[in-house]
Lab assay of single mutants.
Amino acid sequence: MKTQEELTEIVRDHFSDMGEIATLYVQVYESSLESLVGGVIFEDGRHYTFVYENEDLVYE
């Protein structure tokens, strides 16, 4: 089982391919040991929310 830090790094690596990240945040109250819920804001102003669970990243 991966730690929350490892899950965060996986998500950061994925989004870094889309541009320069200004902020990546995790909603700790919605996340667990198996899933990571949060959002990412890019330097150009784009903002996505995401759920990473079971090695699957869903964002909008």
Rank of each mutant, 00 (worst) to 15 (best):
M1I: 12
M1Y: 14
M1W: 12
M1F: 14
M1G: 11
M1V: 11
M1R: 09
M1L: 13
K2Y: 06
K2F: 07
K2P: 06
K2D: 04
K2R: 11
K2S: 06
K2M: 09
K2C: 06
T3E: 04
T3V: 05
T3G: 07
T3Y: 04
T3S: 13
T3F: 04
T3D: 05
T3M: 05
T3L: 05
Q4E: 09
Q4G: 05
Q4L: 13
Q4W: 08
Q4R: 12
Q4I: 13
Q4M: 14
Q4V: 09
Q4H: 06
Q4K: 13
E5L: 12
E5P: 06
E5S: 11
E5Q: 12
E5Y: 10
E5K: 09
E5M: 09
E6Y: 08
E6R: 04
E6G: 05
E6N: 07
E6S: 06
E6L: 07
E6I: 07
L7H: 03
L7T: 03
L7W: 04
L7A: 04
T8I: 11
T8F: 10
T8H: 06
E9P: 02
E9Q: 12
E9A: 13
E9M: 12
E9S: 12
I10F: 10
I10P: 03
I10C: 06
I10K: 09
I10G: 04
I10S: 05
I10V: 08
V11H: 01
V11S: 01
V11N: 01
V11C: 04
V11Y: 01
R12E: 04
R12P: 01
R12C: 06
R12D: 02
R12L: 09
D13E: 12
D13V: 15
D13C: 12
D13L: 14
D13M: 14
D13Q: 13
H14E: 05
H14P: 01
H14N: 06
H14D: 03
H14V: 12
H14W: 12
H14T: 11
H14Y: 11
F15R: 01
F15H: 00
F15P: 00
F15Q: 00
F15K: 01
F15A: 03
S16E: 08
S16L: 10
S16K: 14
S16H: 09
D17T: 15
D17E: 15
D17A: 14
D17Q: 15
D17C: 14
M18V: 05
M18S: 04
M18R: 05
M18W: 11
M18D: 03
M18K: 07
M18F: 08
M18H: 08
G19T: 02
G19C: 03
G19D: 02
G19M: 03
G19E: 02
E20H: 13
E20V: 14
E20R: 14
E20Y: 10
E20F: 11
I21F: 03
I21N: 02
I21K: 01
I21D: 01
I21M: 04
A22G: 06
A22F: 09
A22M: 10
A22I: 11
A22H: 10
A22C: 13
A22S: 11
A22Y: 10
T23M: 10
T23W: 11
T23Y: 14
T23S: 09
T23G: 06
T23N: 09
L24P: 00
L24A: 02
L24V: 08
L24K: 00
L24H: 01
L24Y: 04
Y25N: 03
Y25I: 05
Y25P: 00
Y25C: 05
Y25G: 01
Y25L: 04
Y25V: 04
Y25W: 08
V26N: 02
V26Y: 05
V26C: 05
V26T: 06
V26F: 06
V26Q: 02
Q27K: 15
Q27C: 13
Q27P: 03
Q27A: 12
Q27H: 14
Q27E: 07
Q27V: 14
V28F: 10
V28L: 12
V28H: 13
V28E: 09
V28G: 08
V28Y: 10
V28M: 13
V28R: 14
V28T: 15
V28C: 10
Y29K: 06
Y29G: 06
Y29F: 10
Y29A: 06
Y29H: 07
Y29I: 06
E30T: 14
E30A: 10
E30P: 05
E30L: 11
E30V: 14
S31C: 09
S31E: 11
S31L: 09
S31I: 08
S31Q: 11
S31W: 12
S32L: 11
S32T: 12
S32D: 11
L33V: 12
L33A: 13
L33T: 12
L33G: 11
L33M: 13
L33R: 15
L33C: 09
L33Q: 13
L33K: 15
E34V: 11
E34A: 12
E34I: 11
E34G: 14
E34T: 11
E34R: 08
E34W: 09
E34N: 14
E34Y: 10
E34M: 14
E34H: 10
S35N: 07
S35A: 07
S35I: 13
S35V: 13
S35R: 15
L36S: 02
L36R: 01
L36N: 00
L36Y: 04
L36G: 01
V37F: 07
V37M: 13
V37T: 14
V37A: 08
V37I: 12
V37H: 10
V37R: 13
G38M: 02
G38W: 03
G38S: 00
G38H: 01
G39H: 11
G39M: 10
G39C: 14
G39F: 14
G39V: 12
G39T: 10
G39S: 09
G39R: 09
G39P: 00
V40W: 01
V40A: 03
V40L: 04
V40H: 00
V40Q: 00
V40E: 00
I41F: 08
I41V: 10
I41L: 08
I41K: 06
I41A: 04
I41C: 07
I41Q: 05
I41H: 06
F42W: 03
F42N: 00
F42V: 00
F42D: 00
F42K: 00
F42S: 00
F42E: 00
F42P: 00
F42I: 02
E43R: 15
E43P: 04
E43C: 12
E43W: 13
E43Y: 12
E43Q: 13
E43K: 15
D44I: 02
D44C: 03
D44L: 02
D44M: 02
D44T: 03
G45S: 04
G45N: 04
R46A: 06
R46T: 07
R46W: 04
R46C: 07
R46Y: 03
R46K: 06
R46I: 05
H47Q: 07
H47A: 07
H47S: 06
H47P: 00
H47W: 11
Y48P: 00
Y48G: 01
T49G: 04
T49P: 03
T49Q: 06
F50C: 01
F50T: 00
F50I: 01
F50R: 00
F50N: 00
F50W: 09
F50H: 00
F50K: 00
F50D: 00
F50V: 01
V51E: 04
V51P: 00
V51Q: 07
V51R: 15
V51D: 03
V51L: 09
V51K: 14
V51Y: 10
V51I: 13
V51M: 10
Y52V: 05
Y52D: 00
Y52S: 02
Y52F: 10
E53G: 09
E53T: 12
E53N: 14
E53P: 01
E53W: 13
E53D: 08
E53V: 15
E53L: 15
E53R: 15
E53F: 14
N54Q: 09
N54M: 10
N54T: 05
N54H: 12
E55W: 09
E55R: 09
E55K: 14
E55C: 08
D56W: 15
D56R: 15
D56A: 15
D56Q: 13
D56P: 02
D56T: 15
L57M: 07
L57K: 02
L57D: 01
L57T: 04
L57V: 07
L57W: 05
L57P: 02
L57F: 07
V58P: 01
V58I: 12
V58H: 13
V58L: 13
V58W: 13
Y59T: 05
Y59R: 03
Y59F: 10
Y59S: 05
E60M: 14
E60I: 15
E60T: 15
E60N: 13
E60V: 14
E60G: 10
E60F: 13
E60A: 13
E60D: 08
